[in-house]
């Protein structure tokens, strides 16, 4: 057997797993294999359980729209800047095609969906990043939409909730992606200086420039169980230090243990938790 055919079945298997993991919608007729416990789950069961494995509690990734539906009161979400798209200002190789493919895959125009909604009948600005759009990479539109969302919240004295998932700053927009870290942080700071509440919900994975900016800037930082959160990715850390990584390294529970996350919250409890925290900050009911 030559090397290529020897490797191929394994690669195909890995490929099929990762596509099931990131698939935004799974038809009812399908079975899904849990990548954590390897049990076969009925797709409709998985969907009903908010994409959490019924056997081992593994939290599958969730599309931005599914998450908005999970967290906001029914039909309360009004989207901001839904048509804003990137210009490919650097004319970066294959970027236009990549954007096109990401739009196709995710059904979104960019890697974050922003808007306002109510949670427990309280007004909030909600930003949800999309794992299906270039794994939530932060380009200039991502930064602009988040900045505008914070500016809107500051002007209207509303709390902000951001659900993060991101591989970091988007290299195809070069330095301008990096600048979004500063831009969003500035908007978060102005919101904070007005005495307004910002809650971060970290989901798997949140790394790089998003961790080193708005993901870590919340007054309260929540995370889903077992979410990967860090600045440098685990592979980079391993390659740089030539050391075996400690058990659970950069997982939400580990990071909480180190003092950087306020609470790890099960997905089924997320909406209730947010609504309780909003009440504790005297967020007014929608009138």
């Amino acid at each position: 057997m030559d090397l290529f055919t020897f490797l191929k079945p394994k690669n195909e298997l890995e490929g099929s797993q990762s596509s099931a993991e990131s698939m935004p919608f799974i038809p009812d007729s399908l079975w899904v294999k849990c990548p954590a416990c390897n049990n076969m789950l009925l797709a409709s069961d998985l969907q009903e359980n908010h994409r959490v494995c019924t056997k081992c509690n593994h939290h599958f990734r969730m599309s931005a729209r599914e998450r908005i539906e999970l967290l906001s009161d029914e039909n309360s979400f009004t989207e901001f800047d839904s048509e804003m798209i990137s210009d490919d200002i650097l004319n970066f190789p294959n970027y236009k095609e990549k954007l096109e493919a990401a739009r196709e895959k995710s059904g979104e125009k960019e890697s974050v969906v922003t808007g306002k909604c109510t949670i427990g009948n309280m007004d909030v600005v909600l930003c949800v990043m999309s794992p299906d759009f270039m794994m939530g990479s932060m380009g200039t539109v991502t930064g602009e939409k988040i900045t505008r969302a914070f500016e809107y919240a500051t002007e209207n004295r509303l709390p902000v909730i951001v659900c993060t998932v991101s591989g970091g700053a988007r290299m195809q927009e070069g330095i301008l992606s990096l600048m979004q870290m500063a831009k969003t942080s500035g908007a978060v700071k102005r919101h904070s200086d007005e005495g307004l509440l910002y809650i971060t919900v970290i989901t798997d994975p949140t790394t790089g420039g998003v961790t080193a900016s708005f993901a870590m800037e919340g007054d309260i930082i929540l995370s889903e169980p077992n979410a990967l959160v860090g600045f440098a990715g685990p592979r980079v850390v391993e390659q740089t230090t030539h050391t075996k990584l400690p058990k659970g390294f950069q997982k939400a529970e580990f990071v909480q243990d180190k003092g950087f996350i306020d609470a790890v919250v099960q997905r089924k409890d997320l909406r209730k938790t947010l609504s309780t925290l909003l009440i504790m900050h005297n967020v007014k009911e929608n009138s």
């Binding site: 961790t211 080193a212 993901a215 440098a232 850390v237 740089t240 230090t241 390294f249």
Partner: peptide, 15 residues
Amino acid sequence: PGIDAEERGQGLAIA
């Protein structure tokens, strides 16, 4: 990008 740096909150320090 070290283990200790991550454990002491590199992302937060920059943010």
